[in-house]
Amino acid sequence: MAGSDTAAPPAASAAAPDTVKILIAGGFGVGKTTMVGAVSEITPLRTEEPLTVAGLDVDDLKGIEEKRATTVALDFGRITIGDDLVLYLFGTPGQQRFWFMWNDLAIGALGAVVLIDVRRPESSFAAVDFFERRGIPFVVAVNGFHGVHPYPTEEIRESLALPESVPVVLCDARERASCRDVLIALIDRLIDEFTLRSASPG
């Protein structure tokens, strides 16, 4: 049947790169979009999805009264790794009522950065829970607004009850090099995990 061969016809897509993604998550207003913009090679792009799309649980829409006008905005950036590999960064919607979208976004992600506003870390607790529960590898990046970092990483690790395996990195979401280092910390964690697994099969 005509529709049965829809998945990636090989020949013509040979030039298309492999794509991978990382999520930039965290509470409302912690600097997710700022971080995406700081490392992206393009101005962060934005798509808006009306909330009436099929496939949403009715429960997910609870508390959203203004249905006609409600859209979920998703912003994302791109880092070209090479001719054949492109990394996308997706800033997850920060408002708690939109968190149902995170499930979809998380599918197929390499991992996540949970960004924390150093002045109100509790706003990102739920994000930590989200990735922890799903076993999605993540790093915690502490955004020192105004470049100020009053707490050492160990104190933050303790207050979040994070295991040693989760890196905690201090960062400035406005600085490209700082955000790059956060992403590298995530990849290093993935590499460590991979190496551990290969060393002890089963």
């Binding site: 998945a7 990636a8 897509s13 298309a16 492999d18 794509t19 991978v20 993604k21 880092i79 070209t80 790794i81 090479g82 590999l85 990394l87 599918i107 197929g108 992600a109 390499l110 790059r180 992403l183 590298i184 990849i187 290093d188 993935l190 590499i191 991979f194 190496t195 697994r197």
Partner: peptide
């Protein structure tokens, strides 16, 4: 072209991770 599959331990390969790291 579907994305590079990274779900589960078997799909992730060290080459890919290393490549991303170098690119970053």
């Amino acid at each position: 072209r579907p994305p590079r599959s990274v779900t589960g331990a078997h799909d992730l390969d060290l080459d890919l991770l290393q490549k991303v790291r170098d690119g970053l």
